[in-house]
Write a protein that binds this DNA or RNA. Structure first.
Length: 244
DNA sequence: ATTTCTGTTGTTGG
DNA sequence: GCCAACAACAGAAA
């Protein structure tokens, strides 16, 4: 489920619950769920891969991590291992295998919303400053850095780097400023393409390098390698992606 | 055909 | 600051 664009889709499907009151709360999440009962869901905010359910007197943070999932109005059986279930009169939402925490509402004010590539508050200039200040960082790590490109995950990373023709292990400091700009622009552009493809259930079809073995541009074999500090797998073409 | 193994759209805590 | 741990399930290997 979990890169930023997928979280936007989750938010969209949860939107009908905004304005409704919790009547029942269940699940093995380790916080006091009872306090939610009777509270109205005021708003849903997303920041990168995180989702904040804003209630009248509480804020719940949800992170799907790698394998998290959710469902809505589940007719079916006893929970497989429900982390959090919220019933609003007759309808409900259910979260599984994810991180769920109750956070201090004040915490929302400490978030750098301009770092979220999916947000209309996204600030490319700010991203540029952050990139400039860490010149010995590899581009693959930079894209995965949630303080710079909140919402970007491994798939987006690989596809963006192919789009702009940059080898994942390139150092930020060696990147020409034009390329640095493309990196920023495409991180956001690709994320929105991802969103629309995912919405249309055609995301995988559009992958050019991620999990692929042949370069769609020159036909040569793609390199698959764990790169950067994050040691996350990268797929790239040695001919079409330049190492700076 | 069926079972087992491998790897991962991510973060945290030690 | 780095690595191990954790999670569930699809696709690959056996």
């Amino acid at each position: 489920m979990p890169e930023g664009p997928s979280i936007i889709l989750m938010k969209e499907s949860l939107q009908p619950f905004v304005g409704k009151q919790v009547t029942e709360a269940s699940g093995n999440a380790k916080f006091d769920k009872e306090v939610l009962i009777g509270q109205k869901l005021l708003e849903i905010c997303t920041f990168g891969k995180q989702t904040y359910l804003i209630f009248e007197k509480a804020v719940i943070r949800i992170h799907l991590l790698m394998f998290g999932s959710y469902s809505i109005n589940e007719q079916t059986k006893p929970d497989k291992s429900l982390r959090l279930g919220l019933i609003f009169s007759s309808e409900g939402i259910y979260f599984y295998t994810c991180s769920v925490k109750s956070v201090d509402p004040e915490f929302l004010f400490s978030i750098d919303w301009e770092a979220d590539v999916m947000s209309n508050r996204w600030n490319p200039q700010k991203a540029e400053e952050k990139l400039k200040s860490s010149s010995d960082m590899m581009v693959c790590d930079a894209l995965m850095d949630q303080n710079i490109f909140s919402g970007v995950g491994n798939i987006i990373k690989n596809e963006v780097l192919f789009r702009i023709g940059v080898q994942p292990e390139s150092l930020l400091g060696k990147l020409p400023s034009q390329k640095r700009k493309e990196l920023i622009t495409e991180a956001r552009n690709y994320s929105f393409d991802f969103l629309e493809w995912k919405r249309a259930f055609t995301l995988k079809k559009h992958w050019l390098v991620h999990t692929k073995s042949i370069c769609p541009q020159c036909g040569s074999k793609l390199i698959k390698k764990q790169t950067g500090k994050g040691k996350r797998r990268s797929f790239y073409c040695e001919k079409d992606q330049k190492l700076y």
